[in-house]
């Protein structure tokens, strides 16, 4: 996991817009990051901050026709996905990069058995006999610790629990052994014990297969537990990025600090959790300068006038960056 490794995924200035009746707006703007094999990158931010859109943009699956990826590069193993045709992208989806969606209750098709849905994921990409693909489907279920997978393949989604369904979704994601999996809040709708099991499962899979994971969440507990790197997003942009430990120890953006301050801990007893005043700006009315400025206690004139460029984070770590005019002073 040293910096000299060639990254599996390298994203540069990803730019996604959404067209509405009021005009065209940026939902993902100037997002760049890199990810190495076996690494886990967390993306945190409030609802609407562009986390999920970032994930979908990587796959070229933003909701059409309203949204479209208009700029940037997405280098997966050195190949630019952005320059690929839709047909070529289909070859990549599921095989080299996959995604786990948020709600296991709705992400499996109720009309088909889970065996059928797993087999289909394999059939799209692999030329092999039905029999051996079937064995691989069962193997994938075994990998996500589904008991008695030979029998389970005949089950329909409604015959399984939420946690079990999310395992199946995981099995679909790993079935073709992709290099990268984007997990979009995969544990949000699971209860806490199942959540812990699922995280453990993802970690195990990562160790077994060396896949790189992008974990979209708003739960800092999860970030602390499984991520090595972190992106903090606000209103479509990255406000702070870097190694998790550095950001947790020395949060450099006022937004990150506010987010961390609102996380309850066992040691720190408070009556009422601090919250961030105000609302994220609406897409159609983004501030001209720093997008967090209207809610920021440290904002001054220049914050309202121009968007700050990258600067080094307070930890001094080479990969710790922050987009704040006053990062050094505060």
């Amino acid at each position: 996991m040293s910096d000299s490794n060639r990254p599996v995924l390298e994203v540069e200035n990803l730019h996604t817009v959404i067209a509405t009746q009021r005009g065209t707006f940026d939902v993902v703007d100037q997002v760049s990051f890199r990810l190495e094999a076996g690494e886990t990158l967390g993306i945190v931010g409030e609802s609407g901050s562009g986390k999920s859109m970032t994930g979908l943009s990587l796959l070229g699956l933003v909701p059409k026709p309203a949204a479209s990826v208009v700029g940037g590069r997405v280098l997966l193993d050195g190949e630019d996905l952005r320059s690929k045709s839709e047909a070529e992208l289909r070859q990549v989806r599921g095989r080299k990069i996959s995604m786990i969606l948020q709600d296991p209750q709705t992400s499996l098709n109720p009309a088909f058995t889970i065996g059928n849905q797993l087999l289909e994921a394999l059939q799209v990409h692999e030329r092999d006999s039905r029999q051996s693909l079937r064995q691989r489907a069962i193997q994938a279920l075994r990998q996500v610790r589904v008991a008695a997978p030979e029998r389970r393949v005949h089950d329909y989604p409604h015959q399984m629990s939420g946690g079990m369904k999310q395992r199946v979704v995981g099995a679909i994601a790993i079935s073709c052994a992709p290099r990268v999996i984007i997990a979009d809040e995969p544990t949000t709708s699971l209860d806490v014990t199942i959540q812990a099991q699922y995280l453990k499962l993802l970690e195990d899979l990562q160790r077994e297969t060396g896949l790189a994971l992008i974990f979209i969440t708003h739960d800092f507990g999860i970030v602390a537990r499984i991520c090595q790197h972190l992106l903090v997003m606000y209103a479509g942009r990255i406000v702070e990025a870097g190694p998790v430990r550095e950001i947790f120890n020395r949060p450099s953006h006022p937004y990150t600090r506010a987010l961390l301050a609102s996380v309850p801990t066992v040691e720190r007893k408070v009556d009422r959790l601090p919250s961030i005043e105000g609302q994220p700006p609406p897409l159609h009315d983004l501030p001209k300068g720093c997008r967090f400025a209207p809610r920021c206690g440290f904002a001054e004139t220049r914050c309202h006038e121009a968007y700050p460029g990258h600067s080094a984070g307070r930890s001094g770590h080479p990969r710790h960056i922050v987009n704040c005019w006053r990062a050094e002073e505060i």
Binding site: R93, G94, S107, E120
Partner: peptide
């Protein structure tokens, strides 16, 4: 629906997504 999104994530073509996954439901 989310399962339509998942079908696309799997790398399925639009024809299979529309005529198999969507129409069946």
């Amino acid at each position: 629906a989310e399962y339509i999104k998942l079908a696309r994530i799997k790398g399925l073509g639009e024809r299979a997504v529309v005529w198999k996954h969507a129409l069946r439901n």
